[in-house]
Amino acid sequence: MILINPSIKLITVLIIALEISFTQSTITNILIVLIGFLYLLINNKITWNALLILLLAIIPTVGIFMSQNMYGTAAMGNILVTRLYAYITLGLTFTKTTTIQELGLSLEQNLKMPTKFVYGFMGGFNLINYVKQDIADIKQAAHFRNINLHFWSPSLYFKAILSAIRYAELLSEGMESHGFSEQAYRTHYKKIALNKSDYSKATFILLILQISIVFI
């Protein structure tokens, strides 16, 4: 269910993330975490995966606290930690309530992004499983020759990219065989609505953000 237009949602999330990068209001950050959490709760999107990500953040959290206490200031420590959790919550509010598909269609229809970017990205993204298999194959092929390839071995990337180049060729041929060409006009089956209400929702949120930063 789309409560707010995906493109507007994305831009809003990014603006918020950008603003809190440069402001130092701990309360604002905490507010973002709470509201974000609420949003996820309402949409029933508090999954185990989401909780895991929030839990994992404890590691850098403790790290930041220790580091700022020893070499920086405690106040900065609070800001950074709350900011970290704000980022994560913001990210979750987006990725847990929007599919790549919806985002892609919205970018194409609402932001008029060139289709080569939208569908090139989606096509590539849908090959994730093949790429992962490939890399496992490459590692095993190396084992058969008594070689271990690690993340610092150029050969591992080289082989993976060789395959990727081939996939990119095949996929672009495949897409063309299904009628796709860059810059061509396309009709749209599922329309992603962009209403005044989307703009007002976004403006409202950003306004609250400004108030929070300045006054609280």
Partner: peptide, 30 residues
């Protein structure tokens, strides 16, 4: 054309999405 290896012919995730993608490319009325 139908290719030998179908794994890399599809840009979209589901069967329905690929059909929609194709028909949109062909400028078929929604």
């Amino acid at each position: 054309i139908m290719f030998q290896n179908p794994n890399y012919q599809f840009a979209m995730s589901t069967v329905e999405e690929e059909l929609i993608f194709t028909l949109e490319n062909l400028q078929i009325e929604p």
